[in-house]
Nucleic acid binder design. Sequence first.
DNA 1: ATCGTTAACCTAACGAGGTTCACTTAACGC
DNA 2: GCGTTAAGTGAACCTCGTTAGGTTAACGAT
Lengths: 209, 209
Amino acid sequence: MATDTVERRGRARRGHGDELRDEILRAAETLLVESGDERAVSMRAIAAAVGCTPPSLYLHFADKDELILAICNARWAEFNEMLDRGGDISDDPVESLRERGRAYIKFGMENPEHYRLLMMTKTDDPLEDIADLQKQGAVAFQHLIGAVSRCIESGAFRSMDPYMAAIVVWAALHGFTSLFVTAPNFPWPDLDETIEALLDSHLKGFAAG
Amino acid sequence: MATDTVERRGRARRGHGDELRDEILRAAETLLVESGDERAVSMRAIAAAVGCTPPSLYLHFADKDELILAICNARWAEFNEMLDRGGDISDDPVESLRERGRAYIKFGMENPEHYRLLMMTKTDDPLEDIADLQKQGAVAFQHLIGAVSRCIESGAFRSMDPYMAAIVVWAALHGFTSLFVTAPNFPWPDLDETIEALLDSHLKGFAAG
DNA sequence: ATCGTTAACCTAACGAGGTTCACTTAACGC
DNA sequence: GCGTTAAGTGAACCTCGTTAGGTTAACGAT
């Protein structure tokens, strides 16, 4: 746990106190990604990386949870963007859903620590605190419902409740992604193949007829 | 965080030092279930609940991780038993797989904290430490592969790699369970219905023809 | 130039957590 | 009774999140 203390950053000019906030977020994220371990992201380690003292963090975040939440918010935006880009690849509704699924799993596998924070951390914080987070998650889910709905409307999928179907798809994507993130050393078969099998089976299960 | 200090337990008789080990595990498990929060399970809280001092815990467990691991091991045994009981309900392979799935989700929903520990905690401990745990998880997985294989052999499922298919089923079951455990306040549709939809879609996806 | 105000920080400390080390106490065989 | 030793303490160390209160430097006004 090499607490890399960096030289002290100079004081910000008046009216520019918010600059510290960004530096904190960047440092925390770097710490998270490089260590790959949430426990390495301590308030003290963040402060050391930024070049300030721990109490200074509290000028911008009420507590550690809020700091972590801020990181998550930023990542959700990126996540959503990736998913939508995936969904936009094809005009065919089923192929579009498939690409959305690929993008989902890809994001999780490439950003395991973020995925863990976003999707695998229990949130029993009061609802106001995580309103933004919920909103962004809800957006992702709404888009997924939309993608499924288009498959149904196009006649490719049998008639079914899109909400329910979206949950089933989400469960499958999240299930594989979170298993992989949790146990990367499991003897997974070829990953691309697995992903396709997973998507195949669902799309067949939903197919009309 | 009412650190319920219980009256001090008497010293065990000579040769019966291991009795403390069981008391520790029971106390830790009670603490985990009643608080529903992993953070409430501190070494100090466990010791207080047992009626001994924190250092005494280290007579039986090398560190906290090992203690938690021991709880997991006990629960895996129970989990596996539940799954197999579910699988034994029917002679029809597909229905048997379905019951196995129901049992899986049921266990997770009824034991959220245990499920979180068993299936959602990253294990980058050296492999020796978690060998038992891996073994028990592997047993569960082998049984699942068996259940899927019987579906294929019976002709109910199309010809496919059972290993791959088992992973797909596992991902779906784990996906729903872990989502529920992580966000119990999400507006889930009727749970039984969701479970059936989830299983239906997969079984249809695997169906022969 | 310098002074007062105040935004932007820091020092020191608290309590809780995991863990360790040196020490004590009580159960048993003799 | 008496030594041996299994079975346990007590006090401390270090890290962590967090807070209360003090300090300092950037700026506008004079």
